[in-house]
Amino acid sequence: MDDLLAGLAGALRLLLSGDAGVWEIVLLTLRVSGTALLISAVLGVPAGVVLALRSFPGQRLVTTVIYTGMGLPPVVAGLVVYLLLSRSGPLGDLGWLFTPRAMVVAQVLISLPLVVGLTMSAVEGITPELRLQLRALGATERQIAQAILWEARAGMLVALVAGFGSIISEVGAVLLVGGNIERSTRVLTTAIVLETRKGAFDQALALGFVLVGLTFVLNALALRLRGALLHPAG
């Protein structure tokens, strides 16, 4: 118990001391996971909407692949990205391995299926009756689609929150493709692994609290956004 309290105090001390190293790690964490989520959102939300509203041959297979991807172990995603970006791999000439770019690629691979899959179920969850009613009221196809997307807005936000949660706390993939290089590819999770390995449990725990605090703040913001979306007038 004392250890836990000391960890909390340590986290506050780390942040308030203005330790440039810690802030650098926090900013890189946000940069990498934020970029990965942005890419996943831009690609994944439209893909999820299309999959939910249109039907095409092979759709069931595509859906199964996406659901499987939702359970992809991060280390496997990391291993695949490592083998692609290694100098002896097909994309080795890019020189991306052990840079933040490689970490973004791995995190997109992890979060994209979640964003697509959850967007898809959010849109599918809107009752088919709505579509019939709207049509009966004389709405155009475009207006119907817009109405369905608006109804699914909260679910889509959850898709993004889940996608972000899956990558900001992830360690296996970024350790493998980032290399946990000081001042270059060290993020909160890999720093925690390093401190734990060194036996510096207090420092590891303090960094853990920083990460938890960060995700808490981001989720609180997302929840506010959700409230604003669901009750635009209030």
């Binding site: 946000l30 940069r31 934020g34 109405a147 997307l149 936000l157 956004l225």
Partner: peptide
């Protein structure tokens, strides 16, 4: 109906905040 775009843009900006400079 313009609101949904506002919401999407807002979400993207939120995500991009952390990725400024990238």
């Amino acid at each position: 109906m313009g609101r949904i775009w506002l919401a999407i843009v807002l979400a993207l900006v939120l995500a991009a905040c952390g990725s400024s400079g990238t």
